[in-house]
């Protein structure tokens, strides 16, 4: 089982990538930053980063303004 943002539980399967997880979550924010087990995953690695079971994923939404 994958935990997203300490809240959502997503069923784990062999070969599940960060990109596949994000697609499944249907995020509609233009920009996000993702960590897996507290390590940042750069955007170019979303397709290649394979999640292990019980991974703790954090998705931060980035909005304009400051």
């Amino acid at each position: 089982m994958i935990t997203v943002n300490n809240r959502d539980k997503i069923e784990w399967r062999e070969g599940l990538t960060v990109q596949a997880l994000l697609d499944k979550m249907n995020y509609d924010y233009a920009l996000i930053t993702v960590t897996v087990n507290d390590e940042l995953i750069p955007e170019e690695e979303y397709e290649s980063c394979v999640l292990k079971d019980n991974a703790d994923v954090c998705v931060f939404h980035l909005a304009h303004g400051g």
Partner: peptide, 8 residues
Amino acid sequence: FDRAESKH
């Protein structure tokens, strides 16, 4: 920063 792309 101001812009989300820059934050990213």
